[in-house]
Amino acid sequence: MQILGLYNYWIFIVLMMCGFYVVISRGNLVKKLVGLNIFQTSVFILYISMGKIAGGTAPILTGMATIYSNPVPHVLILTAIVVGIATTALGLALVVRIHEAYGTIEEDEIHAQSEDEAL
């Protein structure tokens, strides 16, 4: 039961591994960025899960509720989401420039061209 009860953490682990695997295994630069995005998003889920308490509400003192969720991880992850957007935007911008310079976004083809240059 405990394993099922922690399902959001299982999602975190599965997403993280999927994303990480895509980054490592794909040769297409855009696909790598997609993988990186999934990898980062999994961490967002980790942070959001840990701040949430079942039945808890937003931490506003109304006198009605007694259980509050911790808002700090949610705020932290807002920052991390912004960082993730910046990283993706910059990564895609680099891919555009790489495409202009090499005419391809496949890692092995770029590598082959760079090898020729070195010779």
Binding site: V23, L29, K32, L36, T87, L90, G91, L94, V95, R97, I98, A101, Y102, I110, S114
Partner: peptide, 10 residues
Amino acid sequence: ALTAAYQYLI
């Protein structure tokens, strides 16, 4: 430099 920056970014 572009591919180096991309690799570093990843």
